[in-house]
Design a protein around this nucleic acid. Structure first.
Lengths: 206, 206
DNA sequence: ACAGAAGTTAAACAATCGTTTAAATTAAAC
DNA sequence: GTTTAATTTAAACGATTGTTTAACTTCTGT
């Protein structure tokens, strides 16, 4: 994709995540990106199609990570869970802007098409994680759990770390505007906690 | 508070949760509430002050539930956890519109005052849950866990159930527009799952 | 060098935004 | 019943919204 197009998408991603889709004007994006206002219509057609292009762009970008994990047969179910947590935490926290857009806009989106598109991506991710857990259960290593909410708990914790950043900054005594410090502290914290949580949750108890 | 004011707040809550704050116009609210456009400025001063009034109204409404729980000395830590989950799931899922507004608007809010206000409420809730877990730890009933993320996991799962309703409707084969069926199915599911999860997570293992 | 496509621009479009105005109506106080 | 305050109304305010237009420049292929 064209450099200029990608640059506009990057700027749009930042502004959408900071101010929301409706809180960001096309003029804001054009101004911040240093391009003429009409270029956005010229490239993407409309503001909504710009959002669709952003989702398509980012999804293809992060795609394929989970598939690799699932194809790796040498790993035990426990190893896969650990790798899954590592991959997922890195992926979401390092793309927190995009993740924030996907999460906060999903309920407010009026267009059925876009909502279906976003839901599709989430279902796809869900299926891959489900597969890992199901494998462990078939090998009698994991116990029976609520599949939807076990995945939802992992995703939810990461969403929480993304959307309630102001809360966690307060709790962890980090300046709200210091993005890097927050990411650097929350990533290992999330990995350790989620691994420990899933271990306790999935372990077969006597 | 005046009946008409409350009615406007109810309508605003519904529209804000469906379309977002910036996606809802003052005319939308006035039209849906059946009042004149100027009444909203007359009552609340501005659109932003309307949001502040909504938050104040709803917060006082749900306030005091957790305090009662914490004051009850007859309950064991495990009992408190169970009661906590029951109360929290009911509270958030039954007020999912307000919860959705609080969560999705927190990152996009420009006004420092409003963000601080919302963060304050969340910190308050956090402290109450933290107290329950700390008590159990002091009695050597709960093990040492990451406090922020243990609470974050519970809140995150509920946030997930609120914001990604379209995902869960797909997974649970519920029509996306059938709010009642979704609530009726997700509430017991959430309660069972979160109790089981917290039990495994907090239990001292040998 | 030239023709046609692609890119870029400033200006304007109608529509909608949040808010205010001033007049009209209703309610309350004495 | 009269006066004063509170409520409600339609209309208008200027600003901003997403999008389009038409003229202009740059690039591309021959």
């Amino acid at each position: 994709m064209n450099d200029k197009r990608v640059h506009i998408l990057d700027v749009a991603e930042q502004l959408f995540s900071e101010r929301g889709f409706d809180g960001t004007s096309v003029r804001d994006i054009a101004g911040q990106a240093g391009v003429n206002l009409a270029m956005i219509s010229y490239y993407f057609g409309s503001k909504e199609k710009l959002l669709v292009a952003l989702i398509a762009h980012r999804s293809s970008y992060t795609h394929g990570i989970l598939e690799e994990l699932n194809r790796d047969d040498k790993l035990s179910p426990w190893d896969k869970i650990e790798r899954l947590v590592d991959l997922y935490v890195d992926k979401i926290i390092n793309n927190y802007r995009f993740h924030s857009i996907m999460t906060t806009h999903l309920p407010t989106i009026q267009s059925d098409d876009i909502r279906e598109m976003i839901t599709d991506i989430k279902v796809k991710n869900f299926e891959l994680i489900k597969k890992i857990i199901t494998e462990g259960q078939q090998q009698k290593i994991f116990r029976k759990v609520d599949m939807e909410l076990t995945v939802g708990c992992v995703m939810g914790t990461l969403t929480q770390a993304t959307l309630s950043k102001s809360l966690y900054c307060r709790l962890m005594h980090i300046d709200i505007h210091d993005e890097d410090t927050y990411r650097k502290k929350i990533i290992p914290k999330l990995k350790t906690h989620l691994k420990s949580l899933l271990k306790a949750h999935l372990e077969i108890r006597n």
